[in-house]
Write a protein that binds this DNA or RNA. Structure first.
Length: 473
RNA sequence: GGCGCCGUAGCCAAGUGGUAAGGCAGAGGUCUGCAAAACCUCUAUUCGUCGGUUCGAUUCCGACCGGCGCCUCCA
């Protein structure tokens, strides 16, 4: 069984193999740092995290690039509205993005190129396109890409067979572009751009990069640096980027290099709220820090997302999140139980067999276009059967722990361990001792009173044959 | 108008041309002083509707109903 991924380019699930195995070059469209990213944005970043981790689990050496769009229409507009310079406005949001990423346990990319720091590469790309005769200057002084010169334009989004909705892109730029579908590579500097410091000199005029140009230039620059290639193995993003963003990236990059830009295009579906996509525009969004401040365990968010396939819409609700939280708790209980058992018994045994069966299914599920819901089902089956086996005194826990650890390196959905200061730990130990004493003397009223006291402090206790255990909830 | 996606139990959600994974919630039971955790049993004769193909369809085809996305620098 080998990894197969759905490629938007072919609209099929295809066997995946990198160009220069074991190295995999992965470029994922990062956030636009005009504001806080919401958890809909993070659904895509989490899907990419799953991809990244499964590639690593599969033995590949992934080089992951995620750009930061720190200059575009929205960042400029937001900076101007705040009366700040562009970098002044975006810096806190970059910082916040990294904090949110860490909260959600997303593996950091190897590089985070910023648009504002990659302008020379963008200028060079435009010059290359000018040399190739596919770029031109419009009447308004901006540089445009001539899609008429790029015959395969529309291959990704199947645009070749579709018509543009009248008025959508046509009207406003009718007199500046040769073809209404041509898109801006470089936008002539406007007063607002100068005001916030978002304008650069270029041989073809002072201005700023178009959004699509940014991603092409940054990805080509980074894979050139790290891997001396001009073709990405995988390029990923949200479905809304298929057109025009990724279509335009392909046009620019391939027109300039003459080589395929990316071999696999992966797109994650939206996070919805009552059926409609989560969006800043609709005001129906929630940020990662909102969840963090509510005390939501990131593991619950991850499990919630894993339980729906990445190419399917997922409706976000507090109920769904709570259900995932309960699942995370169950996983945590099982993991701790297996860990406790590793001291006893042999490496072989029923538990080891179950774990081996699980790992086969786990791998095959993720190999099948990252079918995380199936992988989770296998995981919970292991929990169920493993618990039953442990109840029956099975051995093999050490082997099972190894398998679990490998699976968790991909899914990472174990409950966040809460840190306890020694003073609190001492107090809890004292209370439990007092309760045990009461229980031994059959003073259950007092025992229950102490338990209530602990519960009030968020301490959950459990009486087992080998004594009372506790955890913070 | 063009391109595309989705509709499976109370909720969430996999899946396959041969008779429905998993999670949450719920009911009963075992264990427990009581709990908790865990286990056992139960909870869709049925996969939006109607047709068609087939020995057989939830799965393929068509129509319809319902929900949604992109075509406006949205993950």
């Amino acid at each position: 069984m080998t990894l197969a991924l759905y490629n938007t380019l072919t609209r099929r699930v295809e066997p995946f193999a990198p160009l220069a195995s074991p190295r995999v070059t992965l470029y994922t469209c990062g956030p636009t740092v005009w504001n806080h990213a919401h958890i809909g944005n993070f659904r895509t970043f989490l899907f990419e995290d799953l991809l990244r981790r499964h590639l690593a689990y599969s033995g590949y050496d992934v080089f992951h690039i995620m750009n930061l769009t720190d200059v575009d229409d929205r960042t400029i507009k937001a900076a101007a509205a705040a009366g700040k310079r562009l970098d002044e406005h975006t810096a806190p949001f970059v910082q916040a993005f990294f904090e949110d990423r860490d909260y959600l346990r997303i593996t950091p990319a190897h590089v985070y190129p910023r648009a504002t720091e990659s302008v020379p590469a963008m200028v060079r790309l435009v010059e290359r396109l000018l040399e190739r005769g596919v770029a031109y200057k419009g009447d308004d002084g901006s540089m445009y890409f001539a899609i008429a010169k790029f015959p395969t334009y529309g291959r990704l989004s199947r645009l070749d067979t579709r018509e543009l909705k009248l008025g959508a892109r046509v009207a406003s730029d009718e007199y500046t572009k040769d073809d209404p579908r041509d898109f801006a590579l470089w936008k002539k500097a406007e007063p607002t751009d100068e005001q916030v410091g978002a304008a650069w000199d270029a041989p073809f005029g002072r201005g700023r990069p178009g959004w699509h140009l940014e991603c092409s230039a940054m990805s080509l620059e980074q894979i050139g640096k790290c891997c001396r290639t001009e073709t990405l193995d995988i390029h990923a993003g949200g479905v809304d980027l298929i057109f025009p963003h990724h279509e335009d990236e392909i046009a620019q990059s391939e027109a300039a290099t003459g080589k395929p830009f990316a071999r696999f295009w992966l797109h994650g579906e939206f996070l919805n709220v009552r059926g409609t996509k989560m969006s800043k525009r609709f005001g129906n969004f929630l940020t990662a820090r909102d969840l963090r401040d509510q005390g939501v365990d990131a593991a619950a968010v991850r499990l919630l997302f894993w339980q729906t396939h990445y190419r399917k819409g997922l409706d976000f609700s507090d109920e769904a999140l709570a259900a995932a939280g309960a699942g995370v708790k169950r996983l945590g209980e099982f993991y701790e139980r297996v860990k406790r058992e590793t001291g006893n018994g042999k490496r072989e045994g029923r538990l080891a067999d179950l774990a081996a069966k699980f790992e086969t299914e786990f791998r095959s599920a993720l190999d099948d276009d990252l079918n995380a819901p199936r992988a989770c089902a296998a995981l919970f089956e292991l929990v169920h059967e493993g618990n039953a086996a442990l109840d029956a005194g099975a051995s093999g826990a050490a082997a099972a722990l190894g398998v679990l650890d490998r699976a968790m390196a991909v899914l990472d959905v174990l409950p966040t361990t809460k840190t306890v200061d020694t003073e609190l730990a001492r107090w809890i130990a004292g209370r439990i001792a007092a309760r045990d004493k009461a229980r031994r003397s059959k003073d259950f009223k007092e025992a229950d009173r102490i338990r209530a006291e602990l519960t009030a402090k968020g301490v959950e206790i459990e009486d087992t044959p080998s004594g009372t255990t506790w955890r913070l909830v």
